[in-house]
Design a protein around this nucleic acid. Structure first.
Length: 569
RNA sequence: CGGGGCGUAGCUCAGCUUGGUAGAGCGCUUGCUUCGGGAGCAAGAGGUCGCAGGUUCGAAUCCUGUCGCCCCGACCA
């Protein structure tokens, strides 16, 4: 490609409304332009990268045996009403009406549509298993689109849906997809982790997310140092620790005026946070004897709202009680709650239940209790895993110690089970002629998000640093004084022709720019290999070669073969 | 959805407090010089000041409404 006919619109200035590096660079380098909140146009150079990511995903899905289809982005409401999600999905689903006033949505995902088609076409166990995928635009009306491509509203996604006669075959395909994802992320040149995940409201059992590690990531990951365990903190289990020590202290009521937080009380009474038990009050699930329920946590621990929300006695999604209701139930402010004489049902986290001689609120304003003990001062509590895992905790699988990382979710694999096949009456006949409801899996990759996520890892002060696999061009040829020197012009044109003939994607910077701006653009758009051709080098029959990551350039023979050698190496 | 902020040239922003001829830098056009890390000089083009009302002799500036966008929080296959 000749850059004289491939306009780059790069800027020196960083757009003010771009927060994260990837968003800044994508705008500065002219890869994308904003059309509205969470809506971006891909310009020619950016689209080249997006298409390459898309093709890597396509190749690996094909290699894994999945079959590509293309479904409409506008879907009839009836299908969503069948699955029940027309009501469940909130404002994040964009709803439309056609001229006949019929309801539609702009696809946020496609479980319903694919299940509908499989119901039409698949009748026999002989036709299963099958795994259909598409690479298609999705729209989710996020409450708060942000970070450019990382959380856009319209985005490009690869979504795959598999159908199986039984759970074992679903499990087999799940691991098949997992392997395909590992190949995709590896080819993108990304530092990534597959982590255990919460399956959210899409439903299902087994689920893992693929995260690209980056400080700007929106998710927090618990990864075992010295082990293999990795989980999104939302999903990370906490195993019960050691047994509780025997009670040794007497119960004592102490005055703690205006000491409402655990930190304040801990400091005021000079006891460690780990020796305190705190109480949170949340709404109880429907049908529970009391509308509120108390959760006891150790002072240094945080509530895991996802795990707690799944507890059968706790309302889902987890909802904190409002302060008036707490006041009415306990007769004191929220800063002084404790398990001793707790007026409502209580569930304790494992760790909170393992503390002896603890400090807690006295259920009376401005007072706490010291030396409190389960089984003596407070009833032995029901225990559950309710807390957020913490850095330094032992890994739940017993190997290693937990350290936190931030990650950008680039892919997600789920075992859905029968949630949609059942809701939408999908059945096939098995070998005995019996109707069976197939098991489903679903597997997503955020294709456009991956472009930004890779960039979060691969950049420096001068701009982007693409791996060869997804770079907009592999090589950029920068001729110095092309319009002055016939020798430079000839050599540049020859190299351009030779590399092109060799099947290398090469950009020839024939715009007649000064060297400084050529180099600045080449660095900003992140082309991995750069060849500079100037009269000085040509006098010695040499080109100058530099890898985008290298500190310095080196001289190589002035031949296409020498350049190709560098690309191989 | 709650809180905060911003809409002025293609881009980044100043001007608004205290109403009176609409500005700068970058980019763009032309010419000359320059040519190995975003060149210099000179000339030039380019703006319904988001939109709609209102106050006023006069509104980018003050008031009301409205739309859009950004940030923090809550939320999120």
């Amino acid at each position: 490609m000749r850059l004289s006919r491939f306009p780059l619109s790069t800027t020196k200035e960083t757009p003010s409304d771009a927060e994260v590096v990837s968003h800044q660079l994508l705008l500065r380098a002219g890869f994308i332009r904003k059309l509205g909140a969470g809506l971006y146009t891909w310009l020619p150079i950016g689209l080249r990268v997006l298409k390459k990511v898309e093709n890597i995903v396509r190749e690996e899905m094909d290699r894994a045996g999945a079959l590509e289809v293309l479904m409409p982005t506008v879907q009839p409401a009836e299908l969503w009403q069948e699955s029940g999600r027309w009501e469940v999905m909130g404002a994040e689903m964009l709803r439309l009406k056609d001229r006949h006033k019929n309801d539609f949505c702009y696809a946020p995902t496609a479980e319903e549509v694919i299940t509908f088609h499989v119901r039409q076409d698949i009748r026999s166990y002989r036709q299963l298993p099958v795994n259909y995928y598409q690479i298609q635009t999705k729209f989710r009306d996020e409450r708060r689109p942000r970070f450019g491509l990382m959380r856009g509203r319209e985005f490009l996604m690869k979504d795959a849906y598999s159908f199986h006669m039984d759970a074992d075959d679903l499990s087999r395909e799940y691991y098949n997809m997992r392997e395909a994802y590992i190949r995709v992320f590896t080819r993108l040149g990304a530092d990534f982790r597959a982590v255990q995940a919460d399956s959210g409201n899409i439903g299902g059992a087994m689920s893992e997310e693929f995260h690209i590690l980056a400080n700007s990531g929106e998710d927090l990951l618990a990864v075992a140092e010295g082990g293999t365990y990795a989980a999104n903190v939302e999903a990370a289990e906490c195993k019960p620790g050691g047994s509780r020590a025997a009670a040794s202290a007497a119960l004592e009521r102490v005055s703690t005026p205006d000491q409402k937080t655990c930190e304040q009380v801990s400091k005021f009474l000079n006891v460690p946070l780990t020796g305190k038990v705190k109480l949170l009050v949340v709404r109880a699930a429907e049908g529970q004897p009391h509308k509120l329920i108390a959760i006891a946590l150790r002072g240094d621990h945080q509530l895991n709202e996802i795990k707690a929300g799944k507890h059968p006695k706790i309302a889902s999604p987890l909802t904190l009680a409002n302060p008036e209701d707490v006041q009415a139930a306990f007769g004191c402010e929220t800063g002084y709650l404790g398990p001793v004489n707790c007026p409502i049902p209580l569930i304790a986290d494992h760790a909170a239940a393992a503390v002896a001689d603890f400090v807690c609120g006295a259920n009376e304003n401005d007072h706490h209790l010291k030396g409190a003990n389960w089984g003596r001062d407070a009833a032995e509590p029901e225990v559950a895993d309710l807390r957020m895992i913490a850095e330094g905790d032992p890994s739940p699988d017993g190997v290693g110690t937990i350290k936190f990382y931030r990650g950008i979710e680039g892919g997600h694999v789920f075992q859905l089970g029968k949630k949609y096949s059942k809701a939408m009456n999908l059945t096939v006949l098995d070998a005995q002629g019996q109707a069976v409801t197939p098991e489903m899996g679903c597997y997503g990759i955020g294709v456009s998000r991956l472009v930004a996520a890779v960039l979060e890892q691969r950049h420096d002060a001068n701009g982007m640093i693409w791996p060869d696999s997804i770079a907009p061009f592999r090589v950029i040829v920068c001729p110095i004084g092309m319009d002055k020197s016939e020798a430079v012009k000839t050599a540049a044109e020859q190299l351009y022709a030779d590399l092109t003939a060799a099947g290398v994607e090469v950009a020839l910077d024939d715009r007649g720019q000064r060297p400084g701006s050529m180099f600045a653009d080449a660095d900003l758009i992140g082309i991995p290999h750069r060849v500079v051709i100037g009269d000085k080098g040509l006098a010695n029959a040499q080109f100058e070669y530099k890898h985008r990551r290298a500190d310095k350039a080196e001289m190589i023979p002035a031949t296409a073969e020498a350049v190709l050698e560098k690309l191989r190496g």
